[in-house]
Design a protein around this nucleic acid. Structure first.
Lengths: 128, 128
DNA sequence: AACTATAATAATAATGATTACTGGTTGTAT
DNA sequence: ATACAACCAGTAATCATTATTATTATAGTT
């Protein structure tokens, strides 16, 4: 895959921000320094980077897609109070694809898992 | 929750069809016998039924939402070839919410897990 | 039975995320 | 130098879903 200036820019933005940015947030960030960047370009490059496994697309039902520079196997949690997305590294879930394949006979190519709930910070706030 | 004719109709449709219908498919089915049913009514009633845990909403990134009358804990698999959605009962995953809560300190209220891949039938077809 | 309040409905408009299209520009290879 | 592909910005289109609005049914009350 070619590596245009825009593509590199977008890739770096995702890698440098561990906070699971949305396409729109990335666009807004980069637009400051590159006013003639277009949202379509951001979407297209994010898709292509994800297709080539250089970043990960994180789809959370009910929210816009987010993009994640962390490539290791992990899952996500979204706080319904503050909207924050956190990475979850759950050893119990490693290799779950193989378990499903053996149990059912299908080929698993992808697994998306999202937990929704309330994060520690927001739990605290609720008490006080 | 009240139980209007339309709501009952929609609820039954989901319960009687274990194939994870979309809102639109439900609408098309019911419209045959009830020509002045509206799609908005279908959407609203499905949401309310799901809010009251009488049916389950199944969100699969990239596909329209589907609705499931099976309430027991289970997950879903979608075949990328034929689009079929299958229920997965994976004992290894029962109680996974509690594992996440203990590992991270968050409160988990909901967990959505979807596997994507190729089903057995489509695997066969590919070989031949 | 008439009156009122409440909730559900049909139809349609609006929204919001994402994708597709267009025409122009740049880069690369023959 | 020219042909061809990849890329870009800008914008239009799409699609699922939600919100709105005006209307109709239902239930309770006098």
């Amino acid at each position: 895959m070619k590596y245009s200036k825009q593509r590199e820019m977008i890739h770096n933005c995702v890698k440098d921000n561990p906070c699971h940015l949305t396409a729109d947030a990335i666009y807004e960030m980069l637009k400051k320094d590159h006013p003639n960047l277009s949202l379509g370009t951001v979407y297209r490059n994010l898709s292509q980077l994800a297709d080539h496994d250089m970043i990960r697309k994180v789809s959370i039902p009910g929210y816009p897609d987010r993009f994640d520079g962390t490539l290791e196997e992990h899952f996500h949690f979204i706080c319904l109070e503050c909207g924050d997305v956190k990475d979850l590294f759950i050893p119990e879930l490693f290799g779950i694809d193989a378990v499903v394949e053996q149990a059912t006979g299908v080929d698993v190519s992808k697994c998306e898992m999202t937990f929704k709930g309330v994060c520690e910070q927001c739990k605290m706030k609720k008490v006080t």
